[in-house]
């Protein structure tokens, strides 16, 4: 079954375990700047939003790539860059609307989430479940449940049930 990486900023605690774990797995180092997922923060307001490639259905990175080096991996559903074909024009990083592809400090390497061959390490480390790797249908169910819970509280009060 196909799964998608879902971000729920309301659950994020800003701990950056995802960044530390991602870079340790992919880079073998603690290198938050090279982490595929990174948390953007408004610290003085307590707002934390993890940003990671959404593996778009119509990936702009794929569209703009002049070398056709960007393709979907049918096993993981991740959009991946074929390093052998890539010429490093960086158009993908520039055109991605959500910063899903980073360029390293030497401008020599593109850094992008590949869903860790199907089991994203960031998800394993995210204790509050701000990052989830779930079946697409579950997202809708989950969101509906969250919304319904608010109504159910109201109903419980008015109907006085338990």
């Amino acid at each position: 079954m196909q799964r998608i990486l879902v971000v729920d900023p309301e659950r994020c605690t800003g701990c950056r375990l995802c960044e530390a774990a991602c870079s340790l797995f992919k880079e073998k180092k603690c290198a938050p700047e090279h982490a595929r997922v990174q948390v953007t923060k408004w610290e003085n307001q307590g707002i934390y939003i993890p940003i990671v490639c959404q593996q778009c259905e119509t990936p702009i990175c794929e569209v703009v790539c002049p070398m056709h080096a960007i393709k979907r991996d049918s096993n993981t559903n991740a959009i991946v860059i074929d390093e052998n074909t890539c010429v490093g024009c960086r158009l993908c990083a520039q055109f991605c609307p959500i910063g899903g592809i980073s360029i390293d400090e030497n401008a020599s390497r593109l850094i992008k989430c590949d869903l860790c061959s199907g089991d994203p390490v960031c998800v394993e480390f995210c204790q509050p479940e701000a990052l989830k790797h779930i079946e697409p249908l579950k997202l809708g169910t989950m969101k509906k449940r969250t919304a319904a819970e608010k109504y159910s509280e109201y109903l419980r009060k008015t109907l006085d049930t338990h």
Binding site: E10, T13, C15, L17, A20, G46, P128
Partner: peptide, 13 residues
């Protein structure tokens, strides 16, 4: 509360 917050590398928050 609007949620919890954690230090670097903390699963307890």
């Amino acid at each position: 509360s609007i949620g919890t917050s954690g230090c670097f590398g903390c699963a307890v928050h």
